[in-house]
């Protein structure tokens, strides 16, 4: 009885042939993707979604689902998905990016997509670090944090994505979730998808997510949880904006 077990463990739209997935043990990406997958199943839009993934760890999701997927690079996922949506208005266009791709190299495209109120759903995985390239500083890195490129501690300023998006687009759907609260995350995913399916405009979800490798907590899930809930969730407000 393999199939029922698989159905319980994974959303239906997950591509089982590509499992086990390519992410590190304890990584938050699979949690975010799982929540997304369940939302796609619930809305029955597996064949309508065009899924765009960025460079960095998000690219490892290029065949996570049986969903038409395009892997692009360096913060370009947002404009690519804008083009996909403009090109095919029936598509449910979703851009899946990390906090480096969204807030550094792709910031111009992200902000302007929000200003233009593009009818796409952007999911940003926020782990406070450039993970795949080896733990460099991200625009979300908290002050004083030691990273590969801030050996003496990061400087004082960092970006709060949802606040920024809300500032430029008063009608967008904007929220922040966290991987430690999977059921709430599924609800947010559903709401974001529904917003673009209804043609209401830009939808933006940031998810606080662990990078156990670069946080040095790969063998300490308790520490991972502590950072996520004890530090990040207290600095970055959860819920709707």
């Amino acid at each position: 009885m393999d199939a029922p077990v698989a159905e319980l463990a994974f959303p239906k739209c997950v591509r089982l042939e590509s499992k086990p997935h390519l992410f590190c043990p304890g990584c938050g990406h699979p949690e975010v993707l799982k929540a997304f997958g369940y939302a796609v199943d619930a809305l029955e839009i597996q064949r309508k979604v065009a899924f765009g993934v960025d460079i960095g760890c998000s690219l490892l999701a290029y065949d996570f689902f049986n969903i038409d997927t395009i892997e692009t690079h360096h913060g370009r996922t947002v404009p690519v998905m804008c083009g996909v949506k403009r090109g095919n208005p029936d598509a449910v266009a979703v851009a899946y990016v990390g906090d480096g791709g969204a807030y550094a190299i792709g910031m111009g495209s992200l902000l302007n997509a929000a200003i233009r109120d593009e009818k796409i759903f952007v999911i940003v995985v926020h782990n406070g670090v450039y993970a795949m390239t080896g733990g460099q500083e991200a625009p979300t890195t908290l002050p004083g944090t030691v990273t590969a490129t801030t050996p003496y501690g990061a400087d004082n300023h960092f970006v709060k994505g949802p606040d920024m998006i809300r500032h430029v687009n008063p009608t967008a759907w904007v929220a922040r979730g966290i991987t430690t609260r999977q059921l709430g995350l599924r609800d947010l995913m559903r709401e974001g998808l529904q917003h673009v399916m209804d043609g209401k405009g830009f939808a933006f979800l940031e998810v606080l997510s662990p990078c156990t490798l670069n946080w040095g907590t790969i063998e300490r899930p308790d520490k991972t949880f502590e950072i996520l809930e004890g530090k990040l969730a207290k600095t970055f407000k959860l819920g709707h904006f």
Binding site: A50, G52, I70, T72, R76, P79, V80, M81, C82, G83, V84, K85, R86, G87, N88, A91, G108, S109, L111, N112, R116
Partner: peptide, 26 residues
Amino acid sequence: MVFVQAEDEIGASFMLLGSVMAGRRS
């Protein structure tokens, strides 16, 4: 018809790429 003034040429060209992948003559 679709016309988009992009944020820069990087955005314009990647939107073009996405639009063509969506099957539109762009």
